[in-house]
Amino acid sequence: MRNLITDVPGVLVGNAQDMRAATGATVAIFEQGAIASLSTLGGAPGDRMATSLEPEMVGQAIDAVVLSGGSVYGLDAAGGASAVLCQRGQGRTFGGLAIPVAVQAILFDLINGGEKDWMREPVKHKPPYWDLGRDAALVAAHEFALGTAGAGVGATTAGLKGGLGSTSAKTSQGFTVGALVAVNAVGAATIGSGPHFWAGAYEQGDEFGGLGWPAKLPDDALKLRFKGQPLPVTATTIALVATDATLTKAECKRLAIMANDGLSKSLRPVHAPNDGDTVFAAATGKAGRGGDPPILTELGTVAADCLARAVARGVYEATALPFPGAVPDWKTKFGGGRR
């Protein structure tokens, strides 16, 4: 086990980034496709082909999930990823052509200090996201970087650098579950002004510092902290959970709903009016049936725990952007690991 979503058989992940623009994209590829759905609880989502994942829609299998920075510009990333998949012959066949399905969610990182010169007049450069999606798909593998990588490059949280996180776990029935998240939260992943993560109770080993929870919550633990105070700015945490269980589309919908609670376990506040918080859930079907209510209940619970851990890990592994006024990273601010 790598403690990555790629522990789920049939899942590969690639990152690509533009450090000058302080943005990037992450592509999760399902080698033989996957059944998928999603749960969107943020008030201002941005996505591509998300409606097709609702259980009543005709489409079933997807080939990739794309997480990207760039807000509306970032939606180009799925096009680049789709081009790679098409060249490989992956997707549904229509009229002799392979048509891949790459769904996508975006986060807002347009004002993080990077050079977004495609937004200035006259427009001399195209947004980089089609290329980033292509490049991320080309390097998709079992191993990939966390923290300030891929879609996590431009991500921030309230007071700390955000980033790309991933974890995995096994259920009691032997199914593998994994989570992948780009943490660009409007709220905070840590408790009050201290180093402890809200997700500390779910940590495995010392994957995000080994601090656990504080013996006593600090006085400022419940003080509301969010980006852009006194008024919150646009922010989004976007994620994918995956399992090797065999699930229907409706069962994936339930898995996504349950997994979305992982954001509530790890961030405060979450699902705000200006958030686009979205969680995809995918089943590769490499293992047995997982739709029986007790089994699906455990899958959803483990997925939520994995997602909570992945959020903390994404913040823990991040490094600050090299721009004036950039928010600090966790390791620099709090000095590393177990105390």
Rank of each mutant, 00 (worst) to 15 (best):
G163R: 00
L4M: 14
H196Y: 14
F208A: 01
V84T: 12
L53W: 00
A283W: 05
R254Q: 13
G178F: 04
S264E: 10
I29C: 00
A272H: 07
I62D: 01
P273L: 13
A318Q: 06
A140P: 08
R313V: 03
T278K: 01
P122H: 00
G291V: 11
A326C: 04
T246E: 12
G91R: 05
M119L: 15
V13A: 13
E143T: 12
V103Q: 08
L38R: 02
S39I: 02
R92Q: 13
V279R: 00
T319E: 15
V101G: 04
L41R: 09
V311M: 04
E115D: 15
D329Y: 08
G335Q: 00
A169G: 08
D275Y: 06
K227H: 08
A308Y: 05
A105M: 07
V311P: 11
T26N: 10
L164C: 09
L240R: 07
D47V: 06
G42T: 03
N260F: 00
A149V: 01
P328V: 09
G325E: 06
G114L: 13
S71C: 12
W213K: 13
R120N: 07
A283R: 02
H125L: 12
A215G: 13
G133S: 08
N184G: 12
G133Y: 02
D18S: 09
A61I: 02
A250K: 01
M119Y: 03
A141I: 04
I62R: 04
K161D: 01
R134Y: 06
A151D: 01
A282W: 11
F323W: 10
G80D: 10
V186C: 11
D244W: 09
K161N: 06
A310E: 00
G89E: 09
I106T: 12
T93D: 07
T26S: 15
T23H: 02
V58L: 14
G194H: 07
R88K: 14
I99E: 00
D63P: 06
M119F: 10
G187R: 00
P122R: 00
T156C: 04
A36I: 01
V8A: 07
D275A: 05
M258W: 02
L12C: 01
K265V: 06
G209V: 08
A201M: 12
P328D: 06
V8F: 11
P230G: 10
Q87K: 14
T40Y: 08
G194Y: 03
P218M: 12
A242Q: 13
C252V: 01
I238M: 02
K253P: 01
M258R: 07
D219Y: 08
G69S: 03
A308V: 05
P273T: 13
A179T: 12
G70T: 10
P293T: 07
E203N: 05
K331M: 14
L138E: 15
T236V: 02
L180H: 00
S193M: 09
D277L: 07
K227C: 06
T6F: 03
D206E: 15
E298D: 13
G14C: 02
V279C: 05
G194M: 05
A149L: 04
E121D: 12
